[in-house]
């Protein structure tokens, strides 16, 4: 394959993209991907916004000490780290198990035809 300096070579006109887009395999891939990333994005944004609003407007609650000098706010903040790491892990597992095999299959069908 070598270098891909020529954009025309990277995008052969022979692929009927609309046909692939309309295929059941692709529709399923899109449905599953969107079904995972959209709710997950909504979830972490809502969770983050809740945290910011609490830190911004509920000072008393966030300054409550749980044990020693560890406050509710500190635990909440650290939970944002935990949730970020957990969501990252969940997405990677989902992408490796569901997205990659389906995407690879469709890609091979497209690229196999014209090479």
């Amino acid at each position: 394959m070598g270098t891909t300096e020529d954009p025309a070579a990277a995008t052969p006109a022979t692929t009927d993209w609309s046909e692939v887009q309309a295929s059941p395999d692709f529709a399923e891939l899109r449905r599953r991907l969107r079904g995972f990333v959209f709710p997950m994005a909504g979830l972490f944004l809502a969770w983050y916004l809740l945290y910011v609003l609490l830190a911004d407007y509920a000072h008393g609650f966030m300054s409550t000490k749980l044990f020693g000098n560890i406050t509710v706010g500190l635990v909440f903040g650290l939970l944002q780290f935990v949730s970020t790491f957990v969501i990252t892990g969940l997405y990677v597992r989902f992408a490796n198990r569901v997205v990659d095999p389906a995407a690879d299959k469709i890609r091979h069908e497209i690229e196999g035809d014209d090479q």
């Binding site: 692939v20 887009q21 991907l33």
Partner: peptide, 23 residues
């Protein structure tokens, strides 16, 4: 442009004809 969107969406999700590494 619906055909360009079809191309973009299929390429985005499948990686078909994505830019490869240089050898």
């Amino acid at each position: 442009d619906e055909s360009k969107f079809a191309e973009m969406e299929v390429r985005a999700l499948t990686g078909a004809h994505a830019e490869k590494a240089v050898q």
